[in-house]
Each structure stands twice: as structure tokens, then as C-alpha cells.
């Protein structure tokens, strides 16, 4: 037979690139589903040359070990919170500060844009794809809180940075794991919790609180990275790298919108349980802002001690917050 009878492919068929992706969210969580959609989109645009398998619920690496796991190749991709490894990200820590994020979409956009702009050395050991961040952390309590006086001394569940916010507001931070919080609220070990409103539905804590105070004027967030192992990234062909970059760019908004939707659902859940939502008046808002200022100053000082431009970074966040639609 002649050679032309058999259509030979131009190149030998490429081996599919298989990647493991570790996520601490349970598989049913909307952010995990969004990550799955991201993986599917990449598979689609690369015509199946890249196959990503998601390991949810921390089944491959626990949330605090996720970043180091990506560095060492336990997983090729990872999604977790910067805050779980305190001290590792001295500049990006600034993203989580109580700066008054209006919603998750804005927070996600600001976080990704600034991280890409600053390219801080602290994330040099991975390839950062994008960042998303939850909506403003608010106050959910068993007794209504209208002002700082009513909050004074209240036992509020908080860990890490949010513990500092709680103390600066004059309340008493009590640390415990998220799974323990439901019972602690039910039995009164704590009288409230500081968290995005989405958590009240996701972790069912809405069942055991009575009132929500819209403290989004000092809304903090938790930035979550999506990162790839550095060597893995370098080994990818240029066109696939481009697809990763493009899809990731698009997915910042998808995650952000998902956070917004989750907060919306959280609000509905709280309403369906007949809990009231308290808005702070203008004067009170200013007092809350002033109260948490030391937490922000502390960040700037700590960053300066490490020769990082924390002040400039912070100014950039605040500028973007002002420009963002409310």
C-alpha cells in the first residue's frame, strides 16, 4: 500500500498531562464545584490534553499543609487560605485585614489583581494562578448587638487575625475549631461568632444564633490561593500555560460571584429562621472603624520590619475599595 493510504498524524499523539488538585472545601461546597468547572474548562480548551483530578475535603493534603504540599509536589495544584500558615505570607496577609470589603467579588478581584501586580517573593516557590476571597466577615450573636457597648466583654468565637479584631472591638475572643462552634454557640460557651454570613448556613450556625449585626464596614476577608507546583508549571507547553492563565483570569469573577451568591443564600437562611439583621448607624460605623485601626497599623509595622511595602500595598487595596461599586 502507498504511504498516503494511511493518514498519519502530524505528530505522535501527545500524552495527556494528568494533574492532582488538592482542595480543603468539601466536594459539595460551591467553591469546590467552581474549581471543578475551572478544571473542566481547562480540559475542554486543551482538547483533553490536560486532565485534572480534584481531591476535596483535604483528602490529599490538610488545609494548613496545602501550600507546602504544592511546593513539594504532594499535589500539583492546591487551593487553601493564606491565613492557615501565619507568617509565611507577610505581605499578602494584608488582604485579610478588616478594611470593609463590600462583597466576595470585589475582594476576589482586588486580591488577584494586587498579588499579580506585586508578585511578592513569599509566593515565589509556586506558580500562583489566581486568588479568591469570601465576603465580609460579620458578627452573628445570641443577643442583639447595636453598638460597641453591647459587644463589650461578649465571648466571640475567633481565631488568628479575627481574634485580634474581636479584642480590638472590646469583646473576648475564644478560639475553637469550626466544627466545634455549633455546639459551643448552642450551649453558650461562646455568645457569638465572627464569620462571613455564608458560614451561618454552611456550618449551620444560623440555627443557634439569634441576631446578625451587619459589621461589613470593618468587613475582613480570607484570601484563598490557587497555585501550581513550580516545576510542573515550567514543564507545561506554552499554549497550555496560556490556557491556564486565560481560564484562571475568567474564574476570579466566577468564584467571586459564587461567594456573593453564597452570602445571599446565607442571608436568606438567616431570614428564614426569623433572626433580625441589625445595621449600624453612621456614627457607630466610624467608631468600629477606629476600633480596628490598631490591627491595621500592626500589619504595617510588621511589614516594615521585614522590609516590605505594606503601607503601599494597603493604600492600593483601599484605593481599589473606594473605586469598587458598592
Amino acid at each position: 500500500a502507498k504511504k498516503s493510504d494511511v493518514p498519519t498524524p502530524a505528530k505522535a499523539p501527545e500524552k495527556t498531562i494528568e494533574l492532582n488538585y488538592s482542595i480543603f472545601f468539601p466536594p459539595t461546597h460551591v467553591q469546590c464545584i467552581e474549581a471543578q468547572n475551572w478544571a473542566d474548562e481547562i480540559a475542554k480548551r486543551t482538547n483533553g490534553r490536560v486532565k485534572i483530578t480534584i481531591f476535596p475535603g483535604g483528602s490529599l493534603t490538610q488545609a494548613p499543609q496545602c501550600y507546602e504540599g504544592v511546593v513539594n509536589g504532594i499535589s500539583d495544584l492546591g487551593m487553601s487560605c493564606f491565613a492557615y500558615t501565619r507568617g509565611r505570607f507577610p505581605l499578602l496577609e494584608g488582604l485579610d485585614l478588616p478594611l470593609g470589603y463590600p462583597n466576595g467579588l470585589t475582594a476576589s478581584r482586588i486580591a488577584t489583581e494586587l498579588a499579580m501586580k506585586y508578585k511578592p517573593a513569599e509566593v515565589n516557590d509556586v506558580h500562583l494562578l489566581y486568588i479568591h476571597a469570601h465576603g465580609p466577615g460579620i458578627l452573628a450573636t445570641k443577643k442583639p448587638v447595636n453598638n460597641l457597648e453591647e459587644l463589650k466583654g461578649m465571648k466571640i468565637r475567633a481565631t488568628g487575625l479575627s481574634a485580634k479584631i474581636v479584642s480590638s472591638l472590646g469583646a473576648t475572643p475564644v478560639a475553637m475549631s469550626q466544627p466545634e462552634t455549633y455546639e459551643a454557640l448552642q450551649k453558650g460557651v461562646v455568645e457569638g461568632t465572627l464569620c462571613p454570613i455564608e458560614t451561618l448556613k454552611g456550618w449551620k450556625q444560623g440555627e443557634v444564633i439569634e441576631s446578625v449585626t451587619d459589621s461589613s464596614v470593618i468587613g475582613y476577608t480570607t484570601a484563598m490561593f490557587v497555585a501550581m507546583n513550580k516545576q510542573k508549571w515550567e514543564s507545561l507547553p506554552a499554549d497550555i500555560k496560556q490556557i491556564f492563565t486565560d481560564v484562571s483570569k475568567e474564574w476570579v469573577d466566577k468564584h467571586g460571584n459564587a461567594w456573593n451568591q453564597a452570602d445571599e443564600d446565607g442571608k436568606k437562611f438567616v431570614e428564614s429562621l426569623n433572626h433580625k439583621t441589625i445595621s449600624l448607624n453612621e456614627a457607630e460605623k466610624q467608631r468600629w472603624k477606629q476600633a480596628v485601626q490598631p490591627v491595621i497599623d500592626e500589619y504595617v509595622t510588621a511589614a516594615k520590619a521585614k522590609n516590605l511595602s505594606g503601607e503601599k500595598f494597603l493604600a492600593d487595596i483601599q484605593k481599589m475599595l473606594q473605586q469598587s461599586p458598592k
Binding site: T61, Q62, Q65, N72, G73, I74, S177
Partner: peptide
């Protein structure tokens, strides 16, 4: 996965479990 990843996993998990609240 890879030997390097396996070794990292052991130390990470031992640290994580020994320090679990």
C-alpha cells in the same frame, strides 16, 4: 505520585496529627 511527594506527605501528616487540637 512521586517518592519526593510521599516523603513530604509523611512529615506533613505527622506534624498535622501530633498538633491536632
Amino acid at each position: 505520585v512521586s517518592p519526593q511527594a510521599a516523603l513530604s506527605m509523611i512529615s506533613a501528616d505527622v506534624f498535622d496529627i501530633f498538633s491536632s487540637y
